[in-house]
């Protein structure tokens, strides 16, 4: 099984970090992983995205045009990736910012008010982590417990006080997607 995931949002929404979480978790579970960021001349308010592949087999192309799953955090990302989703793919959109919904019947599209959920927990900037939780609940790409361990390892000292909140955000995201 090969998961080809794109995570996209405004710079600052944590699209790249969310992708790294998944990549580190994939590695911790002994899978093959690649993580590629968009590294264009981004500016504040511009869109940043990354492609993460997690696979049981060696990964050929690290570049993906049509993802099996996507987390879109802002409207431009929804517009860009919704039409590109593979049949049967999972599209998680941040309904706090994205009014549009998918008309496609061949994908599983789930709008989730991730900003509000994160804000209820106490930190609106965890919307990305909420949606990673949702993704894991739907796709089983990695296990939640592995993500906990990855968070413990990779949340910087400065944000150490947010560690438990992040774990809760994962679980809230997972619960709402189930």
């Amino acid at each position: 099984m090969q998961h080809e995931i794109i995570i996209s949002g405004f710079g600052g929404q944590g699209a790249l970090f969310a992708g790294q979480l998944l990549a580190y978790a994939g590695l911790a579970e002994g899978r093959h992983v690649t993580w590629i960021p968009s590294y264009g001349p981004e500016m504040r308010g511009g869109t940043a995205n990354c492609t993460v592949i997690i696979s049981d087999e060696e990964i050929g192309s690290p570049l993906v045009r049509r993802p099996t799953a996507a987390i879109v955090l802002n409207p431009p990302s929804f517009d860009r990736y919704e039409p590109l989703m593979q049949k049967g793919g999972v599209l998680l959109s941040n309904a706090s910012l994205i009014a549009a919904t998918s008309k496609r019947s061949d994908i599983r599209a789930l709008p989730i008010k991730a900003n509000e959920i994160a804000a209820e927990l106490g930190a609106a900037q965890m919307a990305n982590v909420v949606l990673v939780g949702s993704l894991v609940a739907i796709t089983d790409v990695v296990r939640l417990e592995t993500l906990d361990a990855v968070l413990e390892e990779h949340v910087s000292a400065r944000h150490r006080d947010k560690l438990e909140l992040n774990k809760q955000a994962l679980r809230r995201g997972a619960a709402i997607a189930q």
Binding site: V33, T34, W35, I36, P37, Y39, L63
Partner: peptide, 10 residues
Amino acid sequence: DGNIGQMMEP
């Protein structure tokens, strides 16, 4: 190429 410079892999 730039991809290999920017990509993360195990």
